[in-house]
């Protein structure tokens, strides 16, 4: 069965890139461009992995991570454009993995595969 990833990212260009790459890597993809949408999708879709931009409108990435953590063990991969200032905050929220922008799409897919317990394709 194909793993299902929910991508929450407000930058439309980046969201398209992420979705395309995950699809090409064999994932089923759901997307959200703000925090509220992401939470609704999470509840409805029951994804296997959440790829989360920290800087989301409406509900911030950190808040969303707390909400998700309060009710499931869903693996969460954080995308952040912040530097050291947010590094402590990121560490405190204990995501399963985090990548700093700009990141390599292949690195992202490798991390995602690891989190959903899948051998990398190819």
């Amino acid at each position: 069965m194909r793993p299902h990833v929910l991508i929450a990212e407000d930058e439309e260009g980046l969201l398209e890139i992420l979705a395309l790459n995950f699809r090409s890597a064999g994932y089923q993809v759901s997307t959200a461009t703000d925090g509220v949408m992401a939470w609704q999708q999470y509840e409805r879709q029951q994804p296997d992995l959440l790829v989360l931009d920290l800087n989301l409108p409406q509900i911030s990435g950190f808040r969303l991570l707390e909400l998700v953590r309060s009710e499931s063990d869903l693996p969460v991969l954080i995308l952040t454009a912040y530097d050291f200032a947010e590094a402590e905050e990121v560490a405190r929220h204990r995501p399963d993995a985090y990548l700093k922008k700009p990141f390599d799409v292949q690195d992202l897919l490798r991390e995602a595969d690891r989190l959903v317990g899948r051998k990398p394709a190819g």
Partner: peptide, 23 residues
């Protein structure tokens, strides 16, 4: 630096996608 990273992430994202053997 946060704001500079955002377009940079896009550029790298597009380049990485164009280079990707799977896409």
């Amino acid at each position: 630096s946060h704001e500079l990273r955002t377009p940079l992430a896009l550029i790298k994202g597009y380049a990485g996608t164009l280079l990707s053997p799977q896409v």
